[in-house]
Design a protein around this nucleic acid. Structure first.
Lengths: 340, 340
DNA sequence: TTGAAAGCGCTAACAT
DNA sequence: ATGTTAGCGCTTTCAA
């Protein structure tokens, strides 16, 4: 058993109140007494019990972060952004992985509240929990910020990137380069893919390019690291059996990398014979061969902004509902070429 | 403010004890009473205060995990392994990033104890804190497991991979393939690099191959994601200015990927003109072009084994000091070729 | 500057 | 089956 404040008090020959005062350094204590207490603390190797402290003191200086999976760089980079900002302010993180399951998401959030976190950040919160009112309900109980994820009509704090803008920029770039046959790789069942596909159709129309449903390629697995392999298989098949595009837009870099691998396998030169553009700018896009042109979501920055907003909410520096929108930008690397 | 157990008791017209009993489901409560209480809980949206619960109940069902950085797949894969195992047993994780700083490591570990974690896992704990007795001291206060990191003469629980075996296997493979000029890429100041270099020299000697210090390439940055870029620069320079090896052994896959990129840049074909072998088997090695031959450390498995050991320690199913050693194995992919 | 005592929200004997 | 009461380890009035 760890020693308690009473042990320290006894050893130092003072009251527990005094010990508490030197621990928290919030009331005057004479030099002599302080020294005695500090020595007792050192000797006993006393570490105050946070649970007991937390019972009276309000803030726990703890934040809950809920993601799908740490091994996916998209999430880990956001976590790093959150952590770097919040740790400077003395917060520590509970890390929860939902594995993309709606009930797990709910279970974790309740557990976080039970554990008295000062606030919660959910990355890519599920559409279900957005729409069924769960997230809104949570918002009323604890400072709560959602990063990306579904947000139409949902009265929660959001930090999101303007996906439409990003996809638009990518597609216009491809079209400027002279591409007309642009395949679109997406995952299934996620709102963000639906949005992107809508933009895809819109841009084609605006550019007077025909829409061909054969160019919509849907990958069954889209957020774990298996996405790469899975996309590779799919793209290989389509590149062989369907009408060949001159360019591919992929809804995330994992898929883009999978497409790139497929091209390599089929001996299709990128970008000479096939241009590929990704989305997110996880570091994988940077270290690919060739480095992938992509849309930079600035995940670390998103994490930082979300952390900042959450702490402001916690400290009541901010009230009301916030929606912070970051504008993503195209990063031109070497996976796209001009047809003109 | 969240409602308390007293609010629930009042609303349900019972004593707080009864409420506690239905929450914990550990004493008989009549169907009728239970129903009343459950309704009150639902209506008030009551979530018990973990801090107050924790004051009496012993285990917090919380584990502290200390790593260098989440964005490095080596760490995130281990974290995933730990989490997958421990979450099944009802544990939640504090995630702490030391950013490779010895004092931060100490600060976090103390904070974790203060927060009443049931146990701590440190990944790649610093040599300093191993040698100065800090880790041993912590071991006496709380169930404590170190993954990899320095472990000679340190009386702590360890889950480690047998690095010597792995490096040996890699090097022998290269030598069997007919390589005589093998460059060795390492980081600086880490015990694990020293071990690997020792094995490198030993194997050369055993194989009657000359040792050439020009083939020891030391990368200044070796554990953040910048390693790749940094190695790329270094290898490019050495490939141009030093005696050219026919094969490269890299102490981790990040370096191996950097070497691969450098080769690409210089138009050196891998594996035809240069064989590269990595270490760790993070997924980057798998998705490289060509896929990298590497030593599989099975990080996820390491995480699982560490989680298992820690829970056994927590539940007193195990006593004493454990050192679990996993044997890494060579994974042959496509980045090495025979010279014979 | 210090100490006594109440109480944070809950659990766990002990009664009934 | 349910309630009363004494803490868990600490912070914080209040008094001295």
């Amino acid at each position: 058993m760890n020693p308690t404040i009473a042990d320290v008090a006894q050893k130092a020959g003072v009251s527990i109140t005094t010990v508490s005062r030197v621990i928290n350094n919030n009331y005057p204590v004479s030099q002599k007494t302080r020294k005695k207490v500090e020595e007792a603390i050192k000797e006993l190797d006393f570490i105050p019990n946070y649970m007991a402290q937390g019972l009276m003191k309000k803030p726990s200086h703890t934040i809950g972060v809920l993601i799908v999976s740490v091994t996916n760089p998209y999430f880990s980079e956001i976590v790093e952004g959150i952590d770097q900002y919040t740790k400077r302010h003395g917060y520590i993180l509970f890390l929860c992985q939902s594995e993309d399951r709606v009930e797990v998401e709910q279970r974790y959030i309740k557990e976080l509240i039970q554990r008295q976190v000062d606030g919660i950040i959910v990355v890519d919160g599920s559409k279900e929990n957005s729409q069924n009112g769960f997230f809104e309900k949570i918002s009323s109980k604890v400072p709560f910020v959602i990063i990306n994820g579904y947000h139409e009509e949902v009265r929660c704090n959001f930090v999101i990137s303007d996906q439409e803008k990003g996809v638009e920029e990518a597609l216009r770039y491809l079209i400027e380069l002279g591409h007309k046959d642009i395949a679109f790789i997406r995952g299934k069942e996620y709102h963000s893919y639906d949005i992107k596909e809508k933009v895809y159709k819109k841009i084609l129309k605006e550019s007077n390019l025909p829409y061909n449903s054969e160019f919509i390629w849907t990958v069954p697995i889209a957020s774990s690291m298996n996405t790469i392999l899975c996309t590779e298989l799919l793209v290989e098949k389509y590149l062989l059996n369907r009408k060949k595009p001159t360019a591919i837009f992929a809804c995330n870099d994992l898929m883009a990398k999978g497409a790139l691998n497929a091209a390599h396998k089929l001996n299709i030169k990128v970008p000479e014979q096939l241009s590929i553009i990704g989305h997110d700018n996880i570091y994988i896009s940077e270290i690919s061969e060739p480095p992938l042109t992509t849309i930079d979501l600035e995940m670390k920055q998103i994490g930082k902004v979300a952390g900042e907003l959450l702490l402001d909410l916690i400290n009541k520096d901010k009230e009301g509902i916030y929606k912070k929108v970051l504008i993503p930008h195209l990063i031109k690397r070497s996976s796209c070429t001009s047809l003109l």
